[in-house]
């Protein structure tokens, strides 16, 4: 009975429960980072990886699509990790960012967004062809999904793609975002991702806002505003290019 009323309290105050829960998760992750890896793997990288594992568990137990937030007890995690709070916190990181670094990388940053969209689209399209897809609509939708999991369905809907193909494009985008979150801290030293200039280009090339947000948080939180800035233009540019120019290009080639 006591347990019941405890659960009721936790469910009623969902967002507060999420704050407490994430606090414990982050503390636990930093302990692992300090004790098991001697600080080699950043605590936030472990916390994000644990979050993804919990999301997997949540999804497989409940069968929902919100990860851990599908448990009624953890519904607040969905609010805390939703787009509203995420974007609010991202904007806040801009406070104290260097205006100079932004100006310097202005043109390359803008170019990186367009290059990033086209590059991911082409890679996704080539993979789709390799897996035996032959119609321009399916190939373009999967290519768009390789950009982000928003560009995929927007493109697929605009072109009238099959719902199964749209689901695949979302999965490709999700894979990208999860991999960027996990992979960035490991690959960062090799690709010179340690300064605002490179972070701006990284954001523009990767484009997945959640991936970039998680990846930079786990690499160096000081770089977050630069990467996030360019990444937020990516989905818009993708939704612009994929169903139009890029689709026409694919149709001309197939």
């Amino acid at each position: 009975m006591i347990l019941d009323s405890l659960f009721t309290v936790l469910e009623k105050n969902a967002l507060i429960t999420a704050f407490a829960f994430v606090g414990i998760l982050v503390w636990f992750s930093y302990e692992i980072s300090a004790r098991l890896t001697r600080g080699h793997v950043h605590g936030s990288a472990i916390a994000i990886a644990l979050g993804l594992v919990l999301a997997y568990v949540g999804g497989s137990v409940t069968g929902g699509n919100q990860g851990l937030a599908d448990f009624s007890l953890f519904a607040g995690v969905g609010v805390m990790g939703g787009a509203m709070f995420r974007d609010f916190a991202i904007v806040a990181t801009a406070f104290g960012a260097e205006l100079e670094a932004l100006k310097r990388a202005g043109l390359v940053g803008a170019a990186s967004v367009v290059i990033g969209v086209v590059l991911s689209f082409m890679v996704g399209a080539v993979i789709a062809v390799a897996f035996g897809y032959t119609d321009a609509v399916s190939i373009s939708t999967i290519g768009a999904g390789a950009a982000t999991y928003i560009v995929g369905p927007v493109t697929g809907t605009a072109l009238g793609a099959d719902s199964g193909i749209i689901a695949l494009s979302v999965a490709a985008g999700l894979t990208k975002s999860v991999l960027v979150m996990i992979g960035t801290p490991f690959i960062a030293p090799r690709i010179g991702l340690n300064n605002p200039h490179a972070a701006l280009i990284y954001g523009g090339l990767m484009g997945t806002t959640s991936g970039v947000a998680g990846g930079l948080a786990a690499t160096d939180p000081k770089l977050v505003p630069y990467g996030a800035m360019t990444a937020t233009f990516y989905t818009g540019v993708g939704c612009l290019l994929a169903p139009s120019v890029l689709f026409l290009l694919v149709r001309a080639l197939v």
């Binding site: 936030s44 916390a47 979050g51 999301a55 937030a69 969905g78 990790g81 999860v178 959640s210």
Partner: peptide
């Protein structure tokens, strides 16, 4: 961001 990771459709 940790909460965001925990609500992804992994």
């Amino acid at each position: 961001v940790v909460a965001m990771a925990a609500k992804q459709n992994v």
